[in-house]
Amino acid sequence: MDTANALAAQLDGLVHLDTQRASTGIDLTVGAVFRVTGHGQLDFGGGEFRAVPRKRIEPTLDDPEDDYGWWTLETGAYVVQYNESLRLDDGQQAVVTPLERTLRAGAHHGAFVSEDAQDPIETLLVVSRMGCRLKENCRVSRLTVLE
């Protein structure tokens, strides 16, 4: 995919394209955070697959006058749901990687590849022992699309 503008045409839910545009893709923004409340399950054939159960965490305002709240995350695993949803054309693959700033803030997620549309896009975010705060709509990952 040559330009962020072309990729933006395949995304819904962008918060602010000019800020999210990057030379290699589009930065994804956090729309919701869920605490993992139990274990998931994987098997060979997929018939017994179970996603991890989760509970939505609401952001809190530091000041009542603030427009956006914060999620204060302790050590552990969380499901992050991005604001953005993605449509892919035949033969395209989406690659999502953590931004360096996410790693430097004490959190990370594995890079992943998808050949299917994602509505919305989600990932498992792991927070280090120091914890991490996420502000609503913060950029944590980069999406690129390969032809």
Rank of each mutant, 00 (worst) to 15 (best):
D90P: 01
G13M: 00
V15H: 11
A94T: 08
Y78W: 03
H39I: 13
V127T: 06
F34I: 13
A32H: 10
K55I: 14
D43I: 15
L73T: 03
R133P: 05
D12E: 01
Q10I: 03
D89Y: 02
E58F: 13
L11F: 05
A117I: 01
A111T: 14
L134H: 09
G91L: 01
G110F: 02
V33E: 07
L143G: 02
V145E: 00
T29G: 01
A51Q: 15
D119G: 00
I121E: 02
Q93Y: 11
D27H: 10
L134T: 06
A32V: 06
L146I: 01
H39D: 11
L17C: 15
V127W: 04
L73W: 06
A51P: 08
R54P: 09
L17N: 14
T75L: 12
D27G: 09
M130D: 14
A111E: 06
G91P: 02
G46L: 02
H109P: 04
G131M: 09
V140Y: 11
A9Y: 12
T97A: 07
G106M: 00
R104N: 10
T123C: 06
E100Y: 09
L86D: 04
A6H: 04
L86N: 02
V15A: 14
V30H: 08
R50G: 04
T144D: 05
D62E: 15
G47V: 06
V79T: 07
R101V: 10
F34V: 11
V36A: 06
A111R: 10
V113D: 04
E84Y: 00
A8F: 05
A22M: 08
Q10L: 05
R54F: 11
